[in-house]
Deep mutational scan, measured.
Amino acid sequence: SHFELRVGTITLHFDNISEELAEELEKLAKNGVHADEIRRWWEEWLK
């Protein structure tokens, strides 16, 4: 499923992401983690 995450002024787009993972990314964003860090985390997870 597709997921969009708003982090400050940036909107990150994720394809084929589980609800659980989407929730984890939302938690990171709410805790003030920068969009670049979240994207890096996601790319690492995909490997």
Score class of each variant (00 low, 15 high):
residue 40 R to M: 13
residue 1 S to G: 15
residue 36 D to A: 11
residue 36 D to E: 11
residue 42 W to F: 15
residue 14 F to I: 05
residue 31 N to H: 15
residue 38 I to W: 06
residue 31 N to F: 07
residue 33 V to F: 12
residue 13 H to R: 06
residue 37 E to Q: 11
residue 13 H to V: 13
residue 39 R to A: 09
residue 25 L to V: 05
residue 37 E to A: 12
residue 11 T to C: 05
residue 8 G to H: 02
residue 44 E to K: 07
residue 14 F to G: 01
residue 29 A to N: 05
residue 10 I to D: 10
residue 27 K to R: 11
residue 26 E to R: 13
residue 14 F to Y: 02
residue 39 R to D: 05
residue 35 A to K: 03
residue 16 N to V: 05
residue 16 N to K: 03
residue 3 F to M: 05
residue 8 G to S: 01
residue 40 R to T: 09
residue 43 E to K: 07
residue 34 H to K: 13
residue 40 R to H: 12
residue 47 K to E: 10
residue 45 W to I: 09
residue 30 K to T: 09
residue 25 L to K: 00
residue 25 L to C: 02
residue 42 W to N: 02
residue 47 K to I: 11
residue 47 K to M: 12
residue 38 I to S: 02
residue 18 S to W: 03
residue 30 K to D: 10
residue 13 H to K: 06
residue 6 R to G: 09
residue 20 E to K: 12
residue 44 E to C: 03
residue 22 A to M: 15
residue 21 L to V: 13
residue 32 G to H: 08
residue 33 V to K: 13
residue 46 L to T: 09
residue 11 T to R: 02
residue 38 I to N: 01
residue 19 E to I: 14
residue 5 L to F: 01
residue 18 S to A: 06
residue 17 I to E: 01
residue 32 G to M: 09
residue 46 L to E: 10
residue 8 G to Q: 02
residue 10 I to H: 05
residue 5 L to I: 14
residue 33 V to Q: 12
residue 25 L to N: 00
residue 36 D to I: 09
residue 40 R to Q: 11
residue 9 T to P: 11
residue 19 E to S: 13
residue 2 H to K: 04
residue 7 V to S: 01
residue 21 L to F: 07
residue 19 E to P: 14
residue 1 S to I: 15
residue 4 E to M: 01
residue 1 S to E: 15
residue 17 I to F: 03
residue 44 E to H: 11
residue 24 E to S: 11
residue 1 S to R: 09
residue 16 N to I: 03
residue 40 R to L: 11
residue 24 E to W: 13
residue 9 T to R: 04
residue 15 D to L: 09
residue 38 I to T: 02
residue 45 W to H: 11
residue 21 L to I: 14
residue 36 D to V: 09
residue 43 E to W: 08
residue 41 W to V: 14
residue 44 E to R: 07
residue 17 I to C: 03
residue 8 G to E: 03
residue 6 R to H: 15
residue 11 T to I: 14
residue 32 G to S: 06
residue 30 K to H: 12
residue 41 W to H: 13
residue 20 E to Q: 14
residue 18 S to L: 04
residue 38 I to C: 03
residue 16 N to L: 05
residue 45 W to A: 09
residue 16 N to M: 06
residue 35 A to N: 03
residue 19 E to R: 11
residue 13 H to I: 13
residue 41 W to I: 14
residue 5 L to P: 02
residue 22 A to E: 10
residue 8 G to R: 01
residue 7 V to H: 01
residue 28 L to P: 00
residue 43 E to L: 10
residue 3 F to N: 02
residue 37 E to K: 07
residue 21 L to C: 04
residue 4 E to L: 03
residue 41 W to M: 12
residue 38 I to Q: 01
residue 10 I to T: 12
residue 36 D to K: 07
residue 2 H to Q: 05
residue 22 A to L: 07
residue 6 R to C: 11
residue 44 E to S: 11
residue 11 T to H: 05
residue 29 A to H: 03
residue 32 G to L: 08
residue 22 A to G: 06
residue 23 E to Y: 12
residue 27 K to M: 12
residue 8 G to P: 00
residue 9 T to D: 15
residue 33 V to I: 12
residue 15 D to G: 08
residue 29 A to G: 04
residue 7 V to Y: 03
residue 26 E to Y: 08
residue 47 K to V: 13
residue 13 H to S: 06
residue 36 D to T: 08
